[in-house]
């Protein structure tokens, strides 16, 4: 990312400590993760130490520090999804892709995460692929989605 990408992003904010979480959210939306460089830039912008930024960012499960894959698979781990078999889906993804939670496949095509609750509980169990929510999933339908090439 270039200087101007950061200055454009920072322009929305006042530059006070309270902006830290929204700034990190915006960076993760843009890059998909919080890179070391991003932390350095934010540190200079908000006048907070890098340690403090890592301290805050690592507290919240939302933030990730490794590069995501092209497709982000998030399996919902909410209660309704759990009751209707979310755990099985999550394991099936692991088996299918050969990666653990929070990891990215070697070819960078997929990364695999668990999500708290996506709030579509009546359509449980759900899996989110990038921004699309797939409802009433099964292990088989999941396999179809993962094998679909695009």
């Amino acid at each position: 990312m270039k200087d101007k990408d950061y200055s454009r992003l920072f322009a929305e904010f006042e530059g006070v400590e309270a902006d830290l979480i929204p700034v990190l959210v915006r960076i993760q939306e843009r890059d998909g993760y919080i890179s070391e460089e991003a932390v350095r830039r934010v540190s200079r912008f908000l006048r907070l130490s890098e340690n403090q930024i890592y301290g805050v960012a690592s507290f919240y499960p939302k933030f990730r520090f490794t590069e995501p894959g092209k497709k982000s698979i998030k399996v919902c781990m909410g209660t309704a999804c759990h009751v209707r078999g979310g755990l099985f889906l999550s394991e099936a993804v692991g088996w299918q892709l050969g990666v653990g939670i929070g990891q990215t496949t070697a070819d960078k095509r997929f990364d695999f995460q668990r999500a708290g609750c996506l709030g579509c509980c009546t359509l449980a169990p759900v899996v989110m692929v990038n921004e699309d929510v797939h409802s009433r999933m099964s292990v088989i339908r999941l396999k179809e989605i993962l094998e679909k090439d695009d």
Partner: peptide
């Protein structure tokens, strides 16, 4: 904040 799983 609505962090409860199962609530929307």
């Amino acid at each position: 904040s609505e962090g409860d799983p199962g609530a929307f």
